[in-house]
Simulated assay, not measured.
Amino acid sequence: MGALQGRIAWVTGAGSGIGQAAAIALAREGATVVLTGRRKEPLQQTAATIKDDGGKAVVRPGDLMKASVVGRIATDIEKAFGRLDILVNNAGLNITERSWRQLKPEGIDLVIEGNLSSAFYCATAVLPMMRRQKGGVLIHTASMAGRVVSPLSGTAYTAAKHAVVAMSHSLNMEECVNGIRSCVVCPGEVATPILDKRPVPVSKEDRAKMVQSEDCGDLIRYVACLPPHVCINEVHITPTWNRGYVAALQQAHVGAGKK
């Protein structure tokens, strides 16, 4: 019997990447997983993988950038199951026009709403359930862009992910008295479809060296399986072959050669 037998988990952005991997990992531990994302077909594919593996999954598509949609899905979860034990706040997006020279209001709105507003909407929607049951864990996918400012991820994405980190810590400050825990996961480069939005393409060779979606999914599973008295506030997961470190080393060697 899995450690999450009888638990209910809601995973957003569950149609691909980290969300899909997390949903599969949680289901293997026995959780019934509610899958949400904007597109129904990828969610159905995730659900089919879970069910083929003997797990339980329910598809609830929706645009999480709309608070009314988030509220409706949370209400559906409460009506169907009477509780929610785990929220994996994973939905997110980025754009190719990332620099200040390129940013336009519609791009800013899309990134902030897709990464930050949606996370707030989901958290506020599930907290009443978790308060009533005196327990629950919220796991948010942020990014190392939420800790380090660099041009790579873009200004809007970096600002949004910094805010997600702050959001998670503030949840622990207020909700610890209700037995509710919040963990923010800050991945470095992960080989997910979001890389396709990079202004500079990433090679297959580099993607193979990155953290994989399944690595993050297993980390999320681990956090979800911890006993109620344990809270991992924040965790970083990065590739061993860290392209930022490698570039800095190469630059240092070039500089040393000029002396």
Rank of each mutant, 00 (worst) to 15 (best):
Q5Y: 08
G17R: 00
I73F: 01
C176Q: 13
I139A: 05
T155K: 01
H140A: 13
K259R: 11
P42W: 10
M167V: 01
R147S: 08
A125Q: 03
P187E: 12
R132L: 02
N90H: 04
R83A: 03
T96S: 15
C231Q: 09
G107Q: 11
S153R: 05
L110M: 11
L4C: 01
T238E: 08
A9P: 02
R39S: 13
T12D: 00
R83C: 00
L116G: 05
S153Y: 11
D196H: 11
Y245L: 15
P61C: 03
A3R: 08
G71M: 04
L219N: 00
G188C: 06
S68W: 05
Y245D: 07
Y245Q: 10
A91C: 12
R98W: 03
E174N: 12
T36H: 07
L152Y: 10
L226H: 05
Q20M: 13
M167I: 08
V111M: 10
R132P: 02
A31P: 01
L219F: 02
G179D: 04
V111A: 10
I108N: 03
H140M: 08
L64M: 14
E113C: 12
R101E: 09
S150P: 02
A67E: 15
W10R: 10
C225G: 04
A191M: 03
Q5N: 11
Q212P: 12
G37E: 05
M129K: 05
I95C: 05
V148W: 10
S16F: 00
R98M: 02
V126R: 11
G37H: 11
I18C: 06
S143D: 00
E106V: 12
R147A: 06
D76T: 13
V254P: 00
V177A: 13
S150R: 12
K66I: 12
A248W: 13
L84R: 09
K209E: 15
V223Q: 11
G30Q: 02
C225N: 09
G257D: 14
T32D: 08
S170I: 06
S168E: 09
G62W: 00
M173I: 14
D76N: 06
Q212E: 03
I18T: 03
T32L: 08
